[in-house]
Write a protein that binds this DNA or RNA. Structure first.
Lengths: 343, 343
DNA sequence: ATTAGCACTCGACATCATAGAGTGCTAACA
DNA sequence: TGTTAGCACTCTATGATGTCGAGTGCTAAT
């Protein structure tokens, strides 16, 4: 096991490297007030820490840099959360300053402010819209052969899609169908909508609506689910600020991966609760092997959850980000639950 | 005035540089089949062209590079549009392959395919939503004190916003108000909506709806205009592919400027008709002084217009981009007008 | 157990030489 | 007189060489 002194040196080394982005030398360290040993002692300890795999050298005579194992140990055992400066808290809370009534708007703002406060990239996932339940369904005809289908959920989320109508349709039939559907489908979660549409309403429509078949089949296509969960980004370009990233090609790959919706589940583990840290190669995506990702989930009421991720270099300011995310996930949970209860 | 030979040399120089991104030397040029003169002759001509300000040297003994004036002349006088390879046309037309009923979807796809075909960044502006006219207005109550206001336009565009209701309101009153508003405001362009809301409906509401004041004022806030026109991007990251851009800091500034909505009017001159090319410092924004921007407008019906911009390095493949934009603006105009007429 | 001291290593940086691509100019040529 | 071959010259890119300094590992003294 590591001695007290080794722990101290590991911690200070990681802290220093996180702050300076430069390999840390024994002389440098010995000058710090919290380090009472000489540089020679530190050299010995550092050599041991390197032997154990916590530190690395970039070349034979360079200072030390934390290895992934070093970061992992630091994160698991050496992270002493320090309270945020008041100013940062004020800025974080400013998310809720203006009374915003829309969940999405709050999340969008959170993404922005989070990226400003960290100088990293933030990715926020809203609550799964498919868990919302149907509040109102309407069809607004635009012309003789097109109409727009609109779905309003209890969460105030609105989905809409234009679709083509079978030609020569009676306006009354549309209205009848909409009425029946609203009656039968109110309160059904969006994820079940398709199924229920077929099961329950088809026979009734058959009885009341002319040419229900054509109308129904085109309409059914229009009620496509919101394909993916909505993702909100903040500070996408902050990656360009990090001195750790200089290889343009790698940067491009990284940014590509982050924006690509299909990768999102691999970055933000949607199911998991609480705070998680993935360091370097612990990430699934190879394009992110030089990154660390901190994720946290938040709750809206009992049922719904969302998640937050911060993507930065391995040399990320873990302490600060963890504290920020802790506070924000709490705030978001409270505020969004409150907003939902109101509804 | 420039001699025939100077024109030829200027053209070939620009073409070569666009293709290779390397300064063009006299030897290199003399080897080209379309150039029958010796390198010495070319040197003389190039010296003249440099004197006239069409070419530049990066250092005393380097090959020549087009100056902005050179590009400008090339673009104005030497651009011989060459038909696109069949394959590119196929890909471009694939925008309309699946029958998409929504304008925005078509524009989104155009942005994507355009950036793929050019390897530059594309910016597309849809038709001004404020010219759409009101087709339907609804208010869906979500809870005792919140509701979502929905506006559907003739173009199939849907705007929605959650707002808070005055407490203890009668559901019937809301319905009454919505009916009156729909009756009075059908066909009003969104840009006039606010004004007409106040002018025409206020007195009538007064007569029919209890507590019209509170309800109306909160609702009025909800019917905020779509703030800006919707902007669609394609290939934002393509900037990172251009060898012309290597300074990370400049790249960041450029990407920042492009994404910032408030700069859009300076990139895409919304009013102007037809195709425009801005080279380097001809751009208003200093962050774009190393870029060229090609813009073109397209029409939807008689009234509405949208615009397209391609942002790339000054060493852009003007010929190809101009041809692509010519075709696309035509196609978009036709297709979207057709879609609109259907409505 | 700690630390001062020292030899050693290696990257960063500057200096220098060389090769090669390109130019401008001059003189010869058609 | 317009064109071109030839040549001296310029400047970058490249690689070799040397020096400096920050850092290390090891040993011996405390």
């Amino acid at each position: 096991m590591l001695t007290e002194r080794q722990l101290l040196i590991l911690k200070v080394t990681v802290d220093d490297f996180i702050q300076s982005a430069q390999p840390v030398g024994s002389n440098q360290l010995s000058k710090k007030p919290e380090i009472p040993f000489s540089s020679a002692t530190i050299r010995n300890e550092m050599a041991d820490l390197e032997g154990l795999g916590f530190l690395e050298k970039t070349h034979t005579s360079s200072g030390r840099v934390p290895s992934e194992k070093g970061y992992r140990y630091y994160v698991d055992h050496l992270l002493t959360p320090r309270p945020l400066p008041q100013q940062d808290i004020v800025q974080l809370r400013s998310i809720f300053d203006d009374k915003i009534a829309e969940t999405e708007e709050v999340i969008k703002r959170s993404a922005m402010i989070l990226s400003e406060l960290t100088n990293y990239t933030s990715i926020l996932l809203g609550p799964d819209v498919r868990k919302h339940v149907l509040k109102r369904l309407s069809i607004v005809p635009l012309s003789s052969d097109t109409a727009v289908a609109i779905i309003v959920t209890d969460g105030g989320h609105v989905e809409n899609r234009v679709f083509t109508l079978p030609s020569g349709l009676d306006a009354g039939d549309i209205e009848k169908m909409v009425n029946i559907l609203n009656e039968r489908l109110l309160g059904v979660p969006l994820s079940n909508l398709h199924q229920r549409l077929e099961q329950e309403t088809l026979t009734i429509l058959k009885q009341h609506v002319n040419r229900y078949g054509e109308l129904f089949s085109t309409f059914r296509k229009a009620v496509v689910m919101p394909q993916e969960d909505k993702v909100f980004y903040g500070g996408k370009l902050n990656i360009l600020n990090q001195p750790d990233f200089h290889d343009l090609h790698k940067i491009r790959e990284l940014m590509d991966v982050i924006e690509e919706a299909k990768h999102i589940p691999m970055i933000l583990p949607v199911g998991s609760q609480g705070l998680h840290i993935r360091i370097g190669s612990e990430n699934v995506l190879t394009a992110m092997e030089d990154c660390s990702v901190i994720t946290v989930s938040y709750d809206i009421g009992e049922e719904q959850t969302g998640s937050i991720a911060i993507v930065g270099p391995k040399r990320m300011d873990y302490k600060r980000v963890v504290t920020l995310l802790d506070i924000l996930s709490g705030d978001l949970s409270n505020e969004l639950t409150r907003m939902m209860r109101g509804k």
